[in-house]
Design a protein around this nucleic acid. Structure first.
Lengths: 274, 274
DNA sequence: CTAATAGTGTCTATTAGACAGTATGTT
DNA sequence: AACATACTGTCTAATAGACACTATTAG
């Protein structure tokens, strides 16, 4: 091995092809909350927890659904690539974005070795100014989970996507699970894994952070907020307990929401939110 | 654009150099607990929280310290690469390993574009059968943190490494911080960031998981366990409260630890551990 | 009036914090 | 005996769970 006297000298000689090179992409899991049906004039709209998927029109995985994503440019940070893609494809700016996990199975892309770093984004759908592209669609998420597996159903009104994952305990001490896809026919790549990982991350974080508010409009009732918690956690909460927990995160406004066929509700907003 | 009739046909034609390619490495943050000084025959050994660093003997960053790591092979998952490196470099097998974060600053490696996925490993130092390589050394970790910055001092008995990071609030709702290196002269690459991220992750997870036990020997006293919690959390805990919290995670054994110049202590072990 | 949600009061059970006290080894 | 840690008891404060109750609107 040649001896170098300085870092500059070493770098001048360096051959960047000494090691295997590969491609890197990012996949973005965009979560939001949708309004569902209203059974009758008295009832509230059902809330749904939903994810944005895009229909692929090219190979590989032509006609399957996938997460918005794309290749990282040679001089770009992954997070910046995620932001660029969000802006280019959906005109989404300044939103909550968090790195989720880097997937590296050598066979995850049939074209070649592609590694993907996934991000989770949370948005309030109603803030989207431009409509999303024709290829993209919001799917409501329904999760059934037990100790051994997770069944996820995604529905956009037209089409239903179902997939099933096996949970494999990867560390008893941390109660960490890895997922293995055991049923999946409509999702491209390993995106079923990404969705499951994101749902689980969000479920966890909603309990000890304020990230829900990224999915809420500026003004909301506590009933609406509670519905969002319930739909993400997959369980009913008791009113007084819920109100106690979020009491110091929100503040009352002068506004009221009326017209519901029942007692009007005070509109709140996230505290310290400008 | 050419029209393809099937995925097979498309893949046959695909040129993998269509997108920029880059190199991927993994850096592994190996944490453990070390015994420090014993002031006098009555006192317990001080426990320290420590990290394994390697002295670089080649450019770039010659003579600086760095985390053990290496390049991902073209047909290998990142986690498998991390396991391979742990085994090759330190003869460490079957330990707790968790993906931390993927760093992608275009300038993090002066040679070329290298992206790195970091992993955190937790081990019981005393279980290491072969001694670690001459280039590697355990550094005790001392952290001083306030709202704006983090000061970390690493010490292996011979050498002291200090670095300072600025905390930048990246999301108010999630209380997520990003770090920016403002002082660092002895650590290679962006490894100061990795260490800070790992410390923060461990501090969090120790409160709601059982991962500490990966750093403990099979039999330990509750005093020793408490010391480990204290040194990682950076604060003293009250005995009765601590014992209540870990009560259902550990189980008493018949063994006792004697010889300490004070009342002997019952040895416990992690419950359901084998 | 009725159905439906909004919002509060309160009792109980559980958990966390604090401190004081007792126990028991080595030198 | 003295020191240092091991271990427990108990009081109090804070938090979580459960349920019942009152309030208020559109139709």
């Amino acid at each position: 091995m040649k001896e170098y006297k300085s870092e500059e000298e070493f770098l001048k000689d360096y051959n960047p092809n000494e090691f295997d090179r590969l491609s890197l992409t990012t996949d973005i899991l965009i979560f939001s909350v949708s309004d569902g049906l209203q059974e009758n004039y008295r009832k509230l709209n059902e809330k749904h927890f939903s994810v944005l998927l895009v229909k692929r029109d090219t190979y590989p995985f032509k006609d399957k659904w996938c997460l918005p994503g794309g290749f990282i440019r040679i001089d770009e940070e992954i997070e910046d690539a995620a932001k660029r893609i969000l802006e280019d494809e959906a005109n989404i700016k300044n939103i909550y974005l968090e790195q989720l996990y880097t997937y590296s199975n050598p066979n995850r892309d049939p074209r070649m070795r592609v590694i993907s770093t996934s991000y989770m984004a949370l948005i309030d759908k109603n803030k989207l100014t431009n409509s999303i592209s024709k290829k993209a669609s919001w799917f409501n998420i329904f999760v059934l989970e037990d100790k051994e597996e997770i069944n996820v159903t995604l529905d956009n009104g037209n089409e239903t996507i179902k997939f099933k994952l096996k949970k494999i305990l990867s560390s008893r001490t941390a109660e960490n699970y890895k997922y293995e896809i055991i049923e999946n026919d409509k999702l491209a790549f390993d995106h079923a894994l990404v969705i499951a990982t994101g749902i689980s991350r969000l479920k966890n974080k909603i309990e000890y952070t304020d990230i829900v508010f990224n999915m809420m409009p500026k003004y909301f009732t506590l009933g609406e907020l509670q519905q969002v918690y319930e739909v993400i956690l997959g369980k009913k909460l008791l009113d007084p307990a819920f109100r106690r927990i979020i009491a110091n995160k929100v503040e009352k406004t002068e506004k009221m929401k009326t017209g519901g066929g029942h007692r009007p509700s005070v509109l709140f907003r996230y505290k310290n939110n400008d």
